[in-house]
């Protein structure tokens, strides 16, 4: 048997803990970004299809949360930076090779639109709201006129935002667990699923809830399919990726991934949603919150396990 014993001579315990450079900020931001992308995707989609009356929660009510969660997400990103006063340097260049760069620009497109979207629907929450100033009223009518065009932009950029949350990780070939392009579609599916769950939670109409339960079941199915594919890909790949998969297949992240993310965050809410569609009385709060919890845990597990996976030499 061959044994290998590595003694690192860096001789200072302060370095290696520092290499786990990303803590709670990044997974929290990725969750909030995916959630906002999911909500805005459905809002834009049903506006384009002209189904605003059919799905009022998706088009009007749920998007009210998005500016807040995007701002909280951006604050988390800012807190994560080591050189905070220089954050504006992000917006002096656009580097397509760096997902963080075009992701920052995507947020620059999505965040203002989410604010405009809320402003246009403010009477949904405050029926007697008045903009008071003439130019604000002019702006409102201007954006109302171009609502469909704005919806198309939002539809495209919400998909980019959802995919970017995964591509951010998969661009790092130094972390074998992240270095799989399937993370892009997987994080998009998860973001759309949390978005659908959020719409379910704020919806007041039973028909709309049933519709988004169905959408969510399909999305959870896609997620489970992509997760299976991810592990098949890892196990058929190089030793470092086999080791990366091992983190979830018997390694330290096994329980937290399969129990908290896959069972409690995906399979259990899917079962509850199937029951609800089949006319069992399930309080919408339970599957909705479970999906949101699962989405958050998923980001945390991937972020932390990814930083634990590495090349050995």
């Amino acid at each position: 048997m061959r044994e290998e014993l590595i003694i690192s001579g860096r001789m200072n315990p302060m370095i290696d803990p520092q290499l786990n450079i990303w803590h709670w900020h990044i997974p929290l931001y990725l969750f909030l970004g995916g959630l906002a992308a999911g909500i805005l995707f459905f809002a834009a989609l049903y506006t384009i299809q002209g189904k605003e009356k059919l799905y009022p929660a998706a088009v009007k009510r749920a998007p009210f949360i998005t500016p807040f969660i995007l701002v909280i997400g951006l604050l988390a990103l800012l807190l994560d930076l080591n050189n905070k006063p220089y954050f504006w340097q992000l917006y002096t260049t656009l580097r397509l090779e760096s997902p963080m760069s075009w992701g920052a620009w995507t947020l620059m497109v999505v965040t203002p639109i989410s604010f405009i979207w809320c402003a246009l629907n403010i009477r949904e929450i405050f029926p007697s709201f008045d903009w008071k100033y003439g130019w604000l009223k002019w702006l409102e009518s201007f954006f109302t006129k171009y609502k469909i065009a704005m919806s198309w932009v939002l539809l495209i950029f919400s998909v980019i935002l959802g995919i970017y949350t995964g591509i951010l990780f998969s661009a790092f070939n130094a972390r074998p667990l992240w270095n799989t392009s399937i993370l892009g579609p997987l994080f998009l599916a998860s973001g759309l699923s949390t978005g659908a769950a959020c719409i379910m939670l704020v919806s007041r109409s039973h028909a709309e809830r049933i519709m988004f339960s169905k959408i969510d079941i399909v999305l959870i199915g896609i997620e489970l399919f992509l997760i299976t594919h991810m592990f098949m890909g890892f196990l058929a790949s190089t030793q470092v990726q086999i080791d990366a998969a091992g983190l979830f297949l018997g390694g330290p992240y096994t329980a937290v991934f399969w129990v908290l993310v896959v069972f409690i965050g995906m399979i259990l809410p899917a079962i509850l949603e199937v029951l609800e569609i089949n006319r069992f009385r399930v309080p919408v709060l339970i599957p909705g919150l479970l999906v949101l919890f699962g989405g958050l845990m998923f980001r945390f597990v991937i972020a932390y396990a990814g930083q634990a996976s590495r090349w050995l030499y």
Partner: peptide, 17 residues
């Protein structure tokens, strides 16, 4: 240094740490 925002992407991306 004056262009670095300290996001940590490079630290994470380096296989040699």
């Amino acid at each position: 240094p004056r262009r670095c925002i300290g996001c940590g992407a490079c630290i994470t991306s380096c296989p040699y740490d």
